Structures are given as C-alpha cells and as structure tokens.
Amino acid sequence: MKKPTLLILAAGMASRYGSMKQIDAFGPNGETIIDYSIYDAIRAGFGKVIFIIKEEFEENFKSIFEPKLKNKVKTDYVFQDFNLKKYDIEREVERAKPWGTAHAVLAAKDAINEPFCVINADDYYGYDSFKKMADFLTKEVSDNSFALMGFRADKTLSDYGSVSRGVCKVDDEGNMTEIVERTKVYFKDVDDEKKIFFEENDQEVELPLDARVSMNFWGFNPAIFNDTLDLFKKFVEENHTNPKAEFFIPLVADELIKENKATFKTIPTSEKWFGVTYKEDKPIVQESISKLIQEGVYPENLWK
C-alpha cells in the first residue's frame, strides 16, 4: 500500500498577521510551524508532502523547504488560483481572494492518487495526531469513509480572546453527524472554575471542555475530489455574485453526511494545539516550541 500524502494549505493571504506567517520563523534555527508538522508526518509514515500555494510563492517556498527535505520526503507544489475553466466552469467571477479551503484541496486533484490528509500551514497539531491519521489512512479509509482529527475544545483555545471553531457532534460509533462553525468561543472563569462558552443569538452557551472541535485536519482518499468538484460547481453558481463567499471543507463534509454519501470518523487526540493568527501570537508559539524542545519532543535543530 502506498504511503499517505500530507497536503498543506499554505495559500492564505495572512492579512491579519501582516506577513507570510506560513514561512515565518518560530523555532530556534528558523523553523516554521510547517517544519514541525512535516517532521511529525515523516515519523508517522507519510511518504509525500504537497504544498498548496499561490504561484508567486513557489520560489520562496522551494528555497526554504527543498534543502531541508531533500532525501527525507518527496515534495510537490500545486497552485490555488482563480481559473474556473480548469473545473469546466465557464462563468466569469471577479474575486480578490481564493474560494476557500475546499477549493484549495480541489487544486490538488491531479497531484494525488493515494490516501491523504489536509492540514493548515499555521497550526501545530502534534505527533499523536499524525500517527493516528496515518493509521486511519493506511487501514480504514475508503471511497465513502473519511476522517477528521477531533481536538478537545479546552486544548485549542487562547487565553487572550475568542476564536472560531468548528464544533462537532459525534454519534456513539465515533462518527461525526454535524459540524457547526462557532465564531466566538472563549474561556470564562465561573466560580473560580474555567469553563468554555460560545455566543449564539446574543446568548452565552456553555460548551463541554472535552467537546470535539475541528482544527482543519482531515483524512481522505482521492474519491473526495469528484464529490468536491460537484459541490464546487453548485457553490459557484449559487454564490457568483458574492465576492466574499468561501467554499470550506466543513461545508463539503456536512453535505456528504446529510446525503448519506460518506461517514467521517472523528479521531480523538489529546494533543494541545497552538497556532498564529495575529502578530501577538508569535511569542506564545515560540515559547510553546521551546518547551517541547526542552521536554525532548523535538531536537533543537530539527533537520540536522
């Protein structure tokens, strides 16, 4: 069986961060967050890394990652762009930004012929997540059985403000029945106890600490591309006049679940997530990586 592929979403504009956070340095020797994800993925058994980027980023990415990854893992690059004709969509649409994460995945349809997982470039997921996903992709994935890495809600929040999270409902068999995007999720001290709440219709709703949430870590096989393409064509037709409409992976997952076309196993992990949205997040990420190095999780020089 082929080793699974790691597909990294790295075409984002990073407008709130102010620069290309995908290739910003966080480790002691200039390591990016992507470096730690790739390092964990190789250890977990992944055989190839594909970067989804804007075409103008190509040389920059190659100059950073190719020297590190040579003879360690196969690499490839695909481009997320505005060309709809390559998807047999003739409609002309004016947009300032790409169509979203599911469209980014679709950009890799001609580059992948094996089971694969999708991650964000600017999120840290931990080795346990990659090992469990690799096991799923080598033993369980099928044309209608996919997976989502389910992080504990209390392991994914910031102490510095609210965040958006895809909150999963999971049945007794461990399969996701629904994923709902909550745009304002936060910690709150109640009677000297830290709890989690989200806001809905101007009301505070408590979320269990161990509720499973999505951090955009998905497991698929190539069958997902045909379903995604069909849904993308429909999405473009319905949203061609909305320049801000985005075609997200959870939208695809939710639609396939509702139509009984696929199941999504929610794989639990206790790894603590961290990532960057704002410049203010950088020292927190650097501190987290430094602690992992001190604990022996990673070597100080990752690729030496």
Rank of each mutant, 00 (worst) to 15 (best):
T5V: 13
I8L: 08
A10L: 03
G18Y: 02
G18A: 02
M20I: 06
M20V: 04
I23S: 01
G27D: 11
Y39F: 15
R43I: 06
G45C: 08
I52H: 02
E59W: 08
E66L: 15
E66P: 07
K68C: 04
D76T: 04
K85W: 01
K86N: 10
I89D: 09
V93E: 12
V93L: 07
R95M: 09
G100W: 13
H103G: 03
H103A: 15
D110V: 13
D110F: 11
E114Q: 14
C117L: 04
Y127H: 11
K131R: 14
M133V: 14
A134T: 05
V141K: 05
F146N: 11
L148D: 02
F151D: 05
D159F: 10
Y160A: 14
S164R: 08
G166A: 12
D172P: 00
T177H: 08
I179N: 08
K184W: 12
K195R: 15
E204L: 11
V205M: 14
I224W: 07
N226H: 13
D227V: 01
D227G: 00
E238A: 14
A245N: 00
E246L: 14
F248W: 05
V252E: 00
L256P: 09
K258N: 12
K258W: 07
N260D: 12
A262H: 02
T266D: 04
T266Y: 05
F274Y: 15
G275C: 06
E280L: 00
D281C: 00
P283H: 12
P283V: 12
Q286E: 15
L292Y: 07
